[in-house]
Amino acid sequence: MKFDDKIPIYYQIKNYIYGRIITGKLVPGEKIPAVRQLAVDLTVNVNTVQRALSELISEGILESKRGLGNFVTEDQAAINQVRHKMIMEQLHAMYENLHNLNVTDDEIVQYLRQYIKDRRTNKDDQHN
């Protein structure tokens, strides 16, 4: 994984793990790699990984079991909440960016509909 050096790395590690959980690459109850292994895999500082994991634990996304390691929560409601949060963040960024270009709310909806329609057609084209 490549990090953006302008954004705190612990934050990017959190988003990376959220993403793995939301997309099902990490399933509820699954053990995540040890701190040092994660640090080596992601080429980041152990303390930074530790900070990200501590926050995920206090948010209830990960569960720390003494002596056993860290596990993905089995609380589906918590996972849904994270998914919702991630979606809202993306929407928020898109909305802000378009508003900064003086695009109105109605136009945003219209463009988004058209965009999705186009993407679907393109996808169908690719399959044919």
Binding site: D4, P8, I9, Y10, N45, T48
Partner: peptide, 15 residues
């Protein structure tokens, strides 16, 4: 702190 540079200045360490 490296993370402080990132969060305070929204800059990379190199920058």
């Amino acid at each position: 702190s490296a993370e402080e540079i990132r969060s305070q200045y929204a800059e990379g360490i190199e920058q």
